[in-house]
């Protein structure tokens, strides 16, 4: 038959499904922790001298305290909520300006689409981190979430653009029977988004979180008193070599956030990050 060789169905993709569910559950828990951060935290954000300076983890301060005596559990919770909020904002920017715009651009008249892709190619050749730093430098640190989204957008654009198969046989048959380009675009949006929105969102969330926290770590991100995880880790740089817990708590929270987002995005190796 014209189909390729018969091969047995892949041994249970169960592991993949389970890990995806774990990822989404993790994200759900994080969202819960963020929503309840003010209740869960022992102290309000930035409250200095909640305990003595650089206390090791203890029942009173499960994650210890930092250089200013702030309770790290509370600080990490507040930092996590800032990071998650900013990352979500950035993710929306990345998906709309990257994925959505890319999918639409692919269905525009070919020369226009290719010109747009050419422009985005240039930005995609700049490391997203540098692009993010540049945008923040040109605007203000306040716009760090938008900048992180913008920085992730070019790659997302290029990928979404390339995903659209304008030369596909089925599109050609559709055109031959009078189906308009607008209907074809509607197809792309409906089906691609139905199939991939969750995956794309989770993946973009992971990417934007990394950019955002790195930018903050380098001093371009969140501005005190709103401290996000990147900034907390940067502040812990001077103390963590002898008080490991100062960096461990925020780093762990960051790691879990990114890991959950990645697991939620699925483990398909053929997909680009």
């Amino acid at each position: 038959m014209s189909a390729a060789f018969d091969s047995p169905p892949h041994a249970a993709p169960m592991l993949r499904v389970i890990l995806r569910v774990v990822g989404w559950c993790g994200l759900g828990l994080i969202a819960g922790a963020v929503a309840l951060s003010d209740f869960l935290a022992h102290a309000p954000a930035g409250a200095a001298n909640a305990g003595s300076i650089l206390d090791a983890p203890s029942p009173a301060h499960p994650f210890g305290t930092d250089l200013l005596g702030r309770d790290l559990l509370s600080e990490t919770l507040h930092g996590l909520s800032v990071t998650v909020g900013h990352a979500l904002l950035g993710t929306i920017v990345a998906i709309v300006l990257g994925g959505l715009f890319g999918a639409v651009a692919a269905r525009l008249p070919r020369p226009v689409g290719l010109a747009l892709r050419g422009v985005m190619d240039v930005f995609a050749a700049i490391p997203a981190l540098l692009l993010g730093i540049l945008v923040i430098g040109l605007t203000a640190r306040l716009y760090a979430p938008l900048a992180a989204g913008l920085a992730a957008a070019p790659l997302a654009f290029v990928r979404a653009f390339d995903r659209v198969d304008t030369k596909s046989t089925h599109a050609e048959y559709a055109r031959a029977t009078g189906i308009s380009a607008a209907t074809l675009l509607r197809r792309d949006l409906t089906y691609e988004f139905r199939d991939t929105l969750a995956t794309v969102t989770a993946r973009a969330l992971a990417a934007v979180t990394i950019i955002l926290s790195t930018v903050s770590f380098l001093g371009f991100g969140a501005t005190p008193p709103a401290r996000d995880l990147g900034l907390m880790i940067a502040a812990a740089k001077t103390s963590y070599l002898h008080a490991w817990w100062t960096a461990a708590a925020p780093a762990f929270a960051l790691l879990i956030l990114i890991l959950c987002a990645r697991l939620a995005a699925g483990l398909d190796e053929s997909e680009r990050p």
Binding site: S2, S168, T169, H170, Y173, A174, T177, R187, E192
Partner: peptide
């Protein structure tokens, strides 16, 4: 069109 091409319909 009714064709023998298996990809004549959008698989999604």
């Amino acid at each position: 069109f009714i064709t023998g091409a298996d990809d004549a319909l959008d698989p999604r």
